[in-house]
Amino acid sequence: MLHPGRIDLGLGRSSGANQVTTQALQPNHEDFGQKFAELLAFFQGDFPDGHPYGSIIATPGRGNTPAIWLLGSGSYSAQLAGSLGLPFAHGGHFMGSNSARAIETYHEAFRPSETLEEPYAIVSVGVICMETEELAQRYHNAAYVSTVRAMSGEPGPLLSPEEIEATPDGPWAPAQDHFVSDVLSHHVVGSPTIVKAELEDLTKRTGANELMIATIMHGYEHRLRSYELIAEACLKGNPA
């Protein structure tokens, strides 16, 4: 567990999938604001008189509300989270171009509540950290090629740099290339010194209270090593 003792509930409108999967998961496209209000009422037991769900007792949910975050990549959830006085998490690992604006929107919309007196935001960011810049860029390029191929008609697991370099050919749709290039251009890639500096800059630019790191990288051991290097670099000289 990367954050022992912490349980948060993150809620957002997007399924994080393609259009067909989204349709399967959300066939009716019901109003997110309404569904969110109903969820809170299940936790708090405060449905209005006469509400059709008022007689339902959510067990063990009622009276045990976890820390709730609204998730989003644009302005809708940012505005809703701010107006309700809830914490907000922005999906910067796939919409990094909008991170600063989304957090600004959240701050502008924020109204103090029983949950928060001041705004509190997370920005997620894609990061690959290796001992050297060259090695980090090799893994980053492998993730880029694997992702474009998967979106161009050859789905499968992320390939290693060696596999990518040994099999350079594959399906390659220009539109998918452009999309993946844009997404990954906002990721932080490099040695520990470079990664620390760029994460600090991201925190300043967005005003985020926390950063959440997502690592798109082949191999469990390599991903674990990336997280270790990030932790060592960012905690160096700071109390744990």
Rank of each mutant, 00 (worst) to 15 (best):
L2V: 02
P4V: 00
G5F: 05
R6S: 11
R6F: 12
R13I: 13
A17S: 14
Q23F: 05
P27M: 03
H29T: 06
D31I: 03
G33V: 11
G33M: 09
A37H: 04
L40W: 09
D49Q: 10
I56W: 15
I57W: 12
T65A: 14
A67S: 13
L70M: 09
S73H: 04
S73V: 00
A81C: 00
G85L: 13
G85M: 15
H90W: 11
H90F: 14
G92K: 00
A102W: 00
Y106E: 05
A109S: 14
R111I: 10
P112V: 09
T115Q: 11
E118M: 11
P119M: 00
Y120E: 06
A121G: 04
V123A: 07
G126K: 05
V127L: 10
I128T: 09
E131A: 15
Q137N: 07
Y144T: 00
V145L: 03
G153R: 07
L158R: 05
S160K: 06
E163R: 10
T167V: 14
G170P: 08
S185R: 06
T193L: 15
I194F: 10
E198Q: 15
L199R: 03
L202Y: 03
K204V: 14
G207L: 07
L211A: 02
I213Q: 09
I216P: 12
E221M: 15
R223Q: 14
Y227D: 02
Y227A: 03
I230A: 03
A231I: 04
G237Q: 01
